[in-house]
Simulated assay, not measured.
Amino acid sequence: MIDDTEELSDPWLIAVWPGMGNVGLSAGYYLMAKLGMELLAEYSPPEYFDVDHVDVKRGLIRTGVRPRSRFFLWKDPRGKHDLVVLIGEAQPQFGKYSYCQKLIAYAQNDLGIQRVLTFAAMATAMHPDHESRVFSAVTDVESLDELKQWDLNILEEGNISGLNGILLGAAADKGLKGTCLLGEMPHVFSQLPFPKASLAVLESFKLISGIDIDTTELAEQGKEVEQRLGELLSRVEQSMGEQQPESYEEAYQAEPPEEPKLTPEEEQNIENLFAQAEQDRSKAYELKQELDRLDLFKDYEDRFLDLFKNNK
C-alpha cells in the first residue's frame, strides 16, 4: 500500500493481462522495465481466484497457487502523470465485473487514479511483415477528440472481451476517463508472441502521455520475430499446398514443439542478467527476453518481479 504521506501527481493506471500474442503483457513489462518502476502494492482478492491446478516437480505434487495482481509505480520527474502499471497473472474465472468494480474503487480511493488505460491485441488477417496498426476505444467524447488529434485509428464498432474492456466500463461508471489500445497481430499466429504489436501500442501510448520511452530493444525484437514468423508462414503455406490441412493453425500445430535444453552457459547467463538488472532495472527487459526465449519466464516470474521492489 502506498504511504499515506505520499501523493501521486495526476496518476494514470495501465492494466495488462495475458492474452493473444502477449501483446498487452509484453508492453506492460517493457514499460515497467524501461522506466525502472518499483513495486507499489498487491491486489489479489482470493474470492475471485481459485487454485485450478497443481504443480509437479520430479514426480512430486505441489499445491498450486492463486494468480497474483501487482501494482508498480513510476514517479514522473516532470510532475505531470505518475504511472501505475497493474500486472495481472490471470483474469478471474467468474465475477469479472464485480472484480473490476472493486479494483477501480481501490485505484480511486487508495491510489488517486485519474485515468485508466488497458493494452491488448486485435487479431486480423495482416501479414507478419506488415506494420501493426493500433485500434483505440475510449469512454468519453473528450478522449475521443484526443485520439483524432493524434490521428489514431478508432475502433468504430465491435466489442472488447475480458478485463481489457470490462475494467474500462467499470471506470466509466465512476467517471474515470478510460482508453483501450489494441495492437494488431496476425490471427494465424495468435498463440505466439508478437512484439511488433506491443511496440505499436507503446508508440501510441507515448503520443497520448507525452512520456518518452526508449523502444529500441522492442523494435529489434519485433524484427527478429517478424523474420521467424515470415519463414514459418512460408513453410505453412507450402504445407497447405502439399497436404491441404484445414487451417494455418493445424499446420503450425503439426510441427513438433522444441524442448527447452538449458545449458550451464545459459544458466550462468541468466544469473548474470539478474545481477545486471538488480543494479539497473532498465536491463530487466533483456533478462525477460532471454527467459522468454528459453520458455522459462513462468519459472522465474516471482524472482523477476522482485527486482522491482523498493529496496531503499
Rank of each mutant, 00 (worst) to 15 (best):
E157T: 08
L262P: 07
L13H: 02
A171R: 02
R66S: 15
E266N: 06
K177N: 07
D151V: 06
K309W: 05
E231P: 04
F135M: 10
G210H: 11
K298R: 10
L167F: 05
A172C: 07
N272T: 09
P245H: 07
L103N: 07
V116S: 07
S234H: 15
T118K: 13
G59A: 06
A33E: 09
L296I: 00
G210T: 10
A200E: 14
K283W: 04
D302N: 01
I166D: 00
A284C: 13
E157W: 06
V138E: 01
E7G: 03
D299W: 07
H53A: 11
S209T: 13
S209F: 14
M185A: 08
D140Q: 07
W12I: 01
D52S: 15
D55K: 13
I213K: 00
P11D: 02
K75G: 12
Q93K: 14
P186D: 12
A41E: 02
A251V: 13
R281K: 12
L31R: 11
Y97S: 08
K96A: 15
S247T: 15
D76T: 09
N310T: 00
L39P: 03
D10W: 06
K309V: 06
I166L: 08
L232Y: 05
T139N: 06
T5G: 02
Q91L: 12
G165Y: 09
Q227N: 08
E255D: 10
E265H: 02
